[in-house]
Design a protein around this nucleic acid. Structure first.
Lengths: 223, 223
DNA sequence: TAAAAACTCCGTACCAGTACGGAGGAGAAT
DNA sequence: ATTCTCCTCCGTACTGGTACGGAGTTTTTA
């Protein structure tokens, strides 16, 4: 472990939210923290970008994702582009994967839910100010679930479980043949095709053709 | 923001490291924190699992990934399996993507580098104790780089063809949602979903869902 | 401000596929 | 020989989606 840095200055924060009340609320909450200082607040996109320009010492931007008409994620992108060294903490009401990913993709470094406690808010600000990430519990859970972890998905890649005939049927299914047409094509009864289909579904653990097609793609049966 | 909880008890920590000196060092470091209490320390796999069993009140396990012969990641998995509610903070010397992902995949909730400051260590422990994640700066950077962010790699590869709503519906379709479920999810009538579906089919020149899924794959809407 | 696009909703008839639960024959492996 | 897998086939009830053909509301755009 390296030594602790000393003599750090205050964390300068810029608030972005369209609700004046929320702005004031957060500001008041943060007033109690000596090391955090709110140096500006904006309620729309233009204001935010102007203030960011005017306040070069800002280290952290706390931004509400639900700014109407501004598309929070895009604003994050713009800010990060305008001032790459600034750390952005997104404040959201939902922890859905798509939004979290979008925020990260746009350059956000933290994702805080609105139902967080004050201490979480403060911790989050300190974290991102130190260039660390911060994710609210739920957000972290969502993120972990959607993480592309090779070690987790690698286990079994067994495409060898389909029989010859089944692969053949799958091939036609994937070509958008109906059971009827498949039956004609293979000179077998439609019932037989149904059976194959049923078995294929079972063997590939798919609930519907949609899953089946995805299976086929993943196993390079289609391209 | 909800009210701050009060009357929280100490955070009970279990240390796992094969170096006695490191164990003592961390222990001493943490002694200064009133809200953190080291209740046990282990230097190998067996000891760790036994202690975890014997100390039901442990909330956080701080584990050195470089335990020889124990394969840290596996130990994490075992501990998490034995006691799912325990939060595990991994201590590592390197921030490589593979290891980080392995740790997360095994159930770890934080990844701290050994060259962190004392205050980072303390913050990290508090974070994971609160079920939040914690990543050292470098680890976070690595993670973000390797994150599978659709929004980043497929910035609207979908031609302006589909509308916002249609893309949304398509997204659910490929997730094997039925029209019914999609309707619920989007708070619209099933009829509307049908209409969207119809329009999507038309716009993508597909005759059936099969073709649609293939379209989605080709346009990187699925992977 | 008018037109176009996007989004919403409905009915009725119809078809394809699913669920469920069988069953028999051919060839391979033990 | 006997078991096992693969391939074949069937009925009946039911669900989910398609076809067809509208139509109203809001938002965007020209």
């Amino acid at each position: 472990m390296k030594r602790e840095e000393s003599g750090q200055t205050d964390i300068q924060v810029l608030l972005v939210d369209d609700h004046q009340m929320v702005l004031e609320g957060i500001r008041t909450l943060l007033r109690a923290e000596q090391d955090i200082q709110v140096v500006g607040q904006a309620s729309n996109r233009e204001e935010a970008l102007q203030l960011l320009e005017a306040l070069p010492q800002v280290q952290v931007v706390l931004i509400d994702l639900n700014i109407p008409g501004a598309e929070g994620v895009e604003l994050i992108r713009s800010m990060k582009q305008q001032k790459p060294q600034v750390q952005i903490l997104a404040l959201a009401s939902l922890a859905d994967a798509a939004t979290i990913q979008a925020v990260l993709g746009a350059g956000g470094t933290g994702y805080l839910l609105k139902n967080s406690t004050k201490s979480e808010l403060v911790q989050a600000i300190r974290q991102v100010a130190a260039s660390n990430t911060f994710f609210s519990q739920e957000a972290a859970a969502t993120l972990l679930q959607h993480l592309d972890i090779p070690a987790r998905r690698a286990p079994q890649v067994v495409p060898a479980l389909l029989t010859e005939r089944e692969r053949q049927v799958l091939g036609l299914i994937v070509q958008e043949y109906s059971n009827n047409r498949i039956a004609e094509e293979l000179f077998i009864s439609e019932r037989t095709v149904e059976t194959h289909r049923k078995n294929i579904l079972a063997k590939t653990n798919s609930k519907s053709i949609v899953g089946l097609i995805k299976y086929a793609f993943r196993h390079k049966l289609i391209s």
